[in-house]
Amino acid sequence: MTSQPEMTFEIVEQKRRAFSRAIKEFHNTGGRYHNPASELPPSKVEGCEVLINRLALIDKVKKGGVIAEIGVDRGDFSLELLTRCEPLKLHLFDIDIERLVNPTILEELESGENRVKTHVGDSGLNMSRMPDNYFDVIYIDADHRYDGVKRDIEASVPKLKSDGVLIFNDYAVWSPASMYHCGVARAVHEFCLNNPWKFRYLALQPMMYNDVMLVRE
């Protein structure tokens, strides 16, 4: 049985250059591979502050509110929302809650205090079942495809209070880690262009999987 050759930086670079050439050839035939976000007018980013990371962003959230996190994964960021924002209620939405393993969040769920509640299944459908004008903050970090982000936005907006905010994780058009499309920035810009919402905070991330908070104009 022959062993696989060791993967090296040089081999990865060769594959990346081949991928880049394939995209150029595709573009030369009239194809379109990337999906950029529309440019925003100055009014949509006026007053937007840049923060060092997403923890600094959620520190800006008012305490004691009702928060939804759409896309929970292990629950580690759920704990940050719980401890930093001190919500009255924290609602966790995910298609597969089996991945939630953070021990503190699990203890909170088992405590019977009902401060943290899970909603398992399609996030758009489950969010549509929530009361209108209920949430102070909705943090969206689920399906990063353009259509998926649009669905989560459409389901979430009616559920926000008049002064409620939307926060998006992985605000980008391309994922350098997975080398694939990310529709978050495109959907966010489209939403801002078509609705009276604007940027309030942009939180940086080392690989530029940034976060952005939107508020009503």
Rank of each mutant, 00 (worst) to 15 (best):
59 D>T: 07
156 S>N: 05
11 I>Q: 13
199 F>T: 07
152 D>K: 15
12 V>Y: 11
182 C>P: 03
141 D>G: 04
186 R>I: 10
68 A>H: 05
94 D>E: 06
43 S>T: 09
22 A>Y: 08
175 S>C: 11
134 Y>E: 00
114 N>A: 12
57 L>K: 01
85 C>T: 06
30 G>P: 03
90 L>T: 00
127 M>K: 02
191 F>M: 15
214 L>D: 12
37 A>Y: 03
163 D>T: 12
76 D>P: 00
79 L>K: 01
162 S>A: 14
124 G>V: 15
47 G>V: 05
84 R>A: 05
25 E>H: 06
34 H>V: 06
127 M>Q: 06
108 E>C: 04
22 A>K: 10
60 K>Y: 04
191 F>S: 14
117 K>S: 13
51 L>M: 11
49 E>D: 09
95 I>H: 11
78 S>A: 04
173 V>N: 05
45 V>E: 09
193 L>R: 11
127 M>I: 13
99 R>L: 08
158 P>Q: 15
152 D>W: 15
209 Y>H: 14
175 S>P: 15
199 F>E: 04
190 E>K: 08
210 N>L: 14
17 R>D: 08
176 P>A: 13
138 I>M: 13
186 R>L: 12
78 S>L: 05
32 R>G: 05
154 E>V: 12
88 L>N: 03
186 R>S: 09
74 R>N: 14
12 V>E: 07
4 Q>V: 15
69 E>V: 00
43 S>Q: 12
126 N>T: 02
211 D>W: 09
31 G>I: 03
127 M>S: 04
214 L>Y: 01
84 R>G: 03
165 V>D: 02
157 V>K: 04
78 S>Y: 12
42 P>Q: 00
11 I>N: 13
201 Y>L: 07
216 R>S: 10
6 E>C: 09
175 S>F: 07
66 V>W: 00
127 M>P: 13
140 I>E: 03
93 F>E: 01
136 D>H: 14
190 E>C: 07
40 L>R: 02
6 E>Y: 05
107 E>K: 10
38 S>V: 04
213 M>Q: 12
139 Y>H: 10
